[in-house]
Design a binder for these strands. Sequence first.
DNA 1: ATATATTTTCAATAAATTTTGAAAATATAA
DNA 2: TTATATTTTCAAAATTTATTGAAAATATAT
Lengths: 168, 168
Amino acid sequence: MKLTEAKQQFISSWGAFGTHWGINRTMAQIHALLLISPDPQTQDDIMEELNISRGNTNMNIRELINWGLVERVLLSGERKEYFSAEKDIWKVVKQIVKERKKRELEPMLQLLDRLEEVEGDKRDKSVKTFVDTISGIKKLGRQADKTLDMMIKAEESWFIGTMMKFFK
Amino acid sequence: MKLTEAKQQFISSWGAFGTHWGINRTMAQIHALLLISPDPQTQDDIMEELNISRGNTNMNIRELINWGLVERVLLSGERKEYFSAEKDIWKVVKQIVKERKKRELEPMLQLLDRLEEVEGDKRDKSVKTFVDTISGIKKLGRQADKTLDMMIKAEESWFIGTMMKFFK
DNA sequence: ATATATTTTCAATAAATTTTGAAAATATAA
DNA sequence: TTATATTTTCAAAATTTATTGAAAATATAT
């Protein structure tokens, strides 16, 4: 397979992959493009490569910056802004985990805390089922939260080494 | 908080949560409703509770069955079908992991295998960056695949116990 | 200061996804 | 068998989400 075709396939698949995980296709594609670009790219480079409008490009780049996956690069003597993505995949994964944990897991755990304190007699079957379900989710959620915290702090080598030993 | 309100909040939040993970809102809401329902529910029960149409209800129940999260229950002497969700959250998580692994992670790893074999000289910077990125993703992906395999087989007690020890 | 390049915003539009509801298919009862 | 209940399908409609592109804002150069 030629490089050009391989790049296109990667970008397109990364985009489709993203949509299965609640990430918009264009954002995932820009990320993919920057991941495989040796040098920082301008907005115009990205627009041209992916055939998308200036506004769309701009908004999604900003979103990637918010997620901590892309950074602005200023090249001396250049007026345009350049963008580049973190290439270390372990760091990328940790950053995504960190953000999703903060944006989704933590608020969900807070909600579960409140819901668990529902009024009513636990001898009432509907109260019991509700509280038991909420508690079960909360318990697993709290464990996930702790595990992810550790993962975020861990080095890839340590983490993979540990997993290898465990899950030989 | 009253049970009725708590239930509604849970269903609504579970639905919103789902959309952040590429799962349609209604499917997640039906799942939430069944999770907190002490007894199996009919299509009409679900339609009424969530204020959704018969077609929508039917399609999403089927989808939940495909995901292995809900099962049909036949009550003797009853003509209607009843539905209930697996209540053990650890089993639910394992089932979701298993399905997403099969549907998304495995095809992605297969694609990466093919992309890694791109033609061209690795001294060419653009080839090198591409291959290195693909290899990095593949390496982490393969490790995730193994780890998830183990998790799918593990008992909750073993898994949580292990994690607790590690991440004291 | 003015001109020019570049980035950002956002209302309008387009595209994708979800939902409806009525008709068709299927299953059960009489 | 015929009647009735129940489930399934799917084209059309509604809704949600993504994208465009031109105007406004900002930054840099002359």
